[in-house]
Design a protein around this nucleic acid. Structure first.
Lengths: 252, 252
DNA sequence: CTCCCGCCTCCCGTTGCGTGAGGGTCAAGC
DNA sequence: GCTTGACCCTCACGCAACGGGAGGCGGGAG
């Protein structure tokens, strides 16, 4: 079967101009022309176009698609497998984004439940939005996320205050330990790191050692988190980071 | 907290150039500048950037994003909801594509199982690849798809021959009916349309009346399908289309 | 005080088409 | 056989969304 540009364009949901463009750059040249110079596409052309559109959907530049498609002998199976992988990967990414959006909505809901003063009371000067937005970009979605949003959504004001209290208690102890001169890889520091991990697990989500070290690195890498800890005590961010790593290694 | 372009760029996974661009077109202007002219972004800027990136991910042009973001009083909840919807929609689309790819792979596997002669024997001159590719674009994925690929993957050569025989038998009966001059909305024609639907349901996937009429329209709209039926008997494509519609209406 | 990295502002280049302009073609109907 | 409308052709310019480099200032660590 042979098709005109228009037919192909409608079937593949692209514009005629796009097909002209693909022809111009040699990405998809119709297998023939009529006497009047009309482009004639056959089934092989359609198949190729299908692959092109799929790669495009995944964000590949046209040049690269040309390389990919013109590379092997002609077996499409590897392409299909590859696209399958890429697509599922993409879906995962989008799912993470959805989870992130859900969290942000959850945070907004909290803002509505809690008056600004209450909010300040609970979170100190560590803006929850900030936290949410950040966390969201970091581990975007994931299971931990779902858990966190689910639990957080049910917390009452009293829960928040209890959480804050536990948090402050822990903060006092680690600053004291640090002031005492105990090294960050001392058993005491590691114990407090472990306690930190369990605090997170209890209040927000199952915090594995891996996630915990990831968090620790973030405390150093991101100025907002660094600022939060540095304000409690200068050097605390680095100290906690080291303690968490030491603790994780010792438990491995 | 205030951030430099570089920090923002790293956090948001965009280039500095992109931020410059957003500043140029007024989509995201930093809340301030230092004495030396350095851009200074604050948390509100980051929040806005997050929304921008999400909309971009969904394919919105920058201009439109600007309109969307600058439109309401400033409540982000509607945006979040909207993005949530759009993202889940997008995921659905990608899932369809994945299913389509899976079907194409399935077809390739069949090509390997069946020699070219066997393939020809089974499918007549109606290339299964062609069918696969087409079907895939039409109802891309969906539940019907999964079913179809799953069943088709298990068919033996004998199954295919039985299928072909049933199909040909049906073909003979509808051509005969058409030759007899019975109108396409006659009870007999509708009965054959219904039989057609059940043939599909038995061999491939649950074919609802809705899907069936969709198929019918495709038989007319697409030259490849039209050709298939026209070759059996001129006018058959249109006749079958009408019969299927009549049948679907009468059962509704 | 220096060195290097990060920031600044032009400014031209690229990708992937959109959108006519100007003109031939083809099937259908009168 | 002629018109008409839909469809095709080839330029050719335009645009969005940055990429990437040139040329130069700023700033903090050693």
């Amino acid at each position: 079967m042979a098709y005109t540009v228009g037919q192909v364009a409608r079937a593949a949901r692209v514009t005629v101009r796009t097909l002209h463009h693909y022809d111009e750059i040699g990405l998809l040249s119709p297998s023939g022309r009529t006497a009047a110079g009309y482009r004639r596409y056959d089934d092989a052309d359609l198949e190729r176009l299908q692959l092109i559109r799929a790669y495009r959907e995944l964000g590949f530049p046209l040049e690269e698609i040309a390389e990919i498609l013109d590379d092997p002998g002609g077996d499409p199976l590897p392409h299909l497998r590859r696209q399958h992988e890429l697509l599922t990967g993409r879906i995962g990414k989008l799912r993470d984004m959805v989870a992130a959006i859900e969290l942000a909505m959850e945070a907004r809901k909290l803002d509505i439940q809690l008056t600004p003063e209450e909010r300040f009371e609970v979170f100190g000067d560590f803006d929850p939005d900030e936290h949410a937005e950040e966390a969201e970009r970091r581990w975007g979605g994931s299971e931990a996320y779902r858990q966190s949003t689910e639990r957080v959504g049910r917390y009452s004001k009293e829960d928040w205050l209890r959480n804050k209290a536990e948090n402050e208690e822990w903060g006092r102890r680690i600053t004291a330990l640090m002031a005492s001169g105990a090294p960050a890889d001392s058993p005491e520091a590691m114990a407090l790191a472990e306690e930190h991990r369990q605090l997170i697990s209890r209040w927000f989500y199952d915090c594995s050692y891996e996630i915990h070290t990831g968090l620790a690195d973030m405390y150093l890498a991101d100025p907002r988190f660094t600022a939060y800890f540095e304000k409690i005590r200068p050097g605390l961010a680095a100290y906690l980071n080291e303690a968490i790593h030491a603790n994780a290694i010792s438990r491995a």
